[in-house]
Computed example of a mutant assay.
Amino acid sequence: MSVWLSWLSGPVQDRMDILLSLKSVNLDQSSKDHYTSSTIRQRVYKTQKPQYQRYQKEITNAKVPFEVITETSLLTSEQQKMLMIVATKQSGVTECK
């Protein structure tokens, strides 16, 4: 590690902060929660089903295009404005009309 750090200049080192918090785990003790693949699959489907119904196709909130959100969701003008700001920032557009 010290050899690697010697390759970096001081200003670069000053900008590097690594904070890692971990809980200790007792590997001899089994987990309290045991979920089967079937149980997890059912939970996922239960969550996705209303999204499929909302968008009337197999698309989830994570992948829905912006245009579909504006067409299918009842948003106030303030919510629409906020959504436009976020969408503009994510697309890299610097100006929104």
Rank of each mutant, 00 (worst) to 15 (best):
M1E: 09
S2M: 01
S2P: 06
V3M: 14
W4P: 02
W4N: 10
S6N: 10
W7H: 15
W7T: 15
S9W: 07
P11G: 06
V12G: 05
V12H: 09
V12S: 04
V12I: 11
Q13E: 08
D14K: 12
D14C: 01
D14F: 01
M16P: 01
L19W: 09
L20G: 01
L20V: 07
L20Y: 00
S21M: 11
S21V: 04
S21R: 11
L22F: 00
K23Q: 00
K23G: 05
K23R: 08
N26Q: 00
N26M: 07
L27H: 02
L27R: 09
D28M: 03
Q29I: 00
Q29Y: 04
S31G: 01
S31P: 01
K32N: 12
K32A: 10
D33G: 08
Y35E: 01
Y35N: 10
Y35G: 00
S37V: 13
S37M: 14
S37F: 14
S38H: 10
S38E: 15
I40W: 03
I40G: 04
I40V: 13
I40L: 12
R41D: 14
Q42E: 14
Q42W: 07
Q42C: 07
Q42H: 11
Y45W: 11
K46G: 08
K46E: 12
Q48K: 04
Q48M: 00
Q48N: 10
P50V: 03
P50W: 05
Q51P: 04
Q51I: 05
Y52V: 05
Q53H: 03
R54W: 08
Y55D: 01
Y55F: 09
Q56M: 02
Q56E: 12
Q56W: 03
K57T: 05
K57S: 05
K57W: 07
E58K: 12
E58C: 09
I59R: 08
T60N: 08
T60A: 02
T60F: 05
T60C: 08
T60L: 06
N61C: 05
N61E: 06
N61Q: 02
N61K: 07
K63G: 11
K63I: 08
K63P: 02
V64H: 03
V64R: 04
E67L: 06
V68W: 04
V68I: 05
I69C: 13
I69K: 11
E71D: 07
E71H: 03
S73G: 09
S73C: 15
S73L: 15
L74V: 14
L74S: 14
L75I: 04
L75R: 02
L75F: 04
S77H: 13
Q79H: 08
Q80H: 12
L83Y: 09
L83M: 09
M84K: 15
V86D: 12
V86G: 02
V86H: 07
V86Q: 08
A87N: 15
A87T: 11
T88G: 10
T88D: 05
Q90M: 14
Q90I: 13
Q90E: 15
G92E: 01
G92R: 03
T94K: 14
T94Q: 13
E95P: 06
C96M: 14
C96N: 12
C96F: 15
C96K: 09
